[in-house]
């Protein structure tokens, strides 16, 4: 029990959760505790595979699926896992679902699997999933954990899509592969390069922080 209190103190925004209604478990991940724009977690896929809207969406959904499944399993086994081996158990569970996702994406489309590349396997080390397992699923009921995973997962998908859409529009003049500018549009190649990921993320963080500031003043 002692470490639970300790964990709660560590993860600041979670302390507010106590006794909140269950819809809030879902809503918080979308906006207030958005995993990318507020918690700034899981930056590796956010920066690497958000070069087109399609890649971003696929990556976001894959991560959300792994998050949902691992949250369910961790939550249902939460009384079974001793705390000394909890991290190892979580990683094992997450890795399993990542492997499953990897096979599933290959079975859906070889092309998509090629464009996501090594980043599917890297979902294993996405700290968003581990942090939800550790900070939420291991202490809450399955129902709450599912809501939490759905909220966080969709928040992640939303954030990745925000990046992917901006980068594809500027870098390629298209959205989901459909051109939206006249063919003479000059692509900003930098936006589909890794550097563009940093620029776009910085601008989105700027917008979110401005919104947060305005809210706290008002």
């Amino acid at each position: 029990m002692g470490n639970q209190i300790h964990d709660k103190a560590n993860t600041g925004f979670l302390s507010s959760l106590k006794g909140s209604p269950s819809t809030d478990e879902f809503i918080k991940g979308l906006w207030r505790d958005n995993p990318v724009f507020i918690q700034v977690l899981g930056m590796c896929p956010v920066l690497a595979v958000s070069n087109t809207a399609e890649n971003a969406l696929a990556m976001g959904l894959a991560t959300a699926f792994v998050l949902l499944m691992s949250n369910i399993l961790v939550s249902s086994l939460r009384n079974f896992i001793p705390k000394q081996v909890r991290i190892a158990s979580y990683i094992l569970i997450i890795a399993t679902f990542v492997t499953i996702t990897d096979y599933a994406i290959q079975a859906i489309s070889v092309e998509l699997h090629k464009s996501l590349g090594a980043f599917i396997s890297l979902i294993v080390v996405n700290c968003l999933i581990l942090s939800r397992a550790e900070a939420f699923a291991s202490k809450n009921s399955i129902g709450k954990s599912i809501l939490d995973a759905l909220g966080m997962g969709l928040g992640f998908v939303f954030a990745l899509f925000c990046l992917g859409a901006v980068r594809e529009i500027m870098g390629n003049g298209s959205l989901f592969g459909f051109p939206i500018f006249p063919s003479t549009f000059q692509n900003w190649i930098v936006m589909i390069l890794p550097a563009g990921g940093f620029f776009t993320l910085a601008i989105w963080l700027l917008i979110f922080n401005l919104l947060k500031q305005k809210k706290s003043i008002a």
């Binding site: 399993l73 079974f80 896992i81 158990s89 094992l92 569970i93 890795a95 399993t96």
Partner: peptide, 9 residues
């Protein structure tokens, strides 16, 4: 726990 989870996975 580890063996159990391992088998499930």
């Amino acid at each position: 726990a580890m063996v159990g989870i391992g088998i499930i996975c």
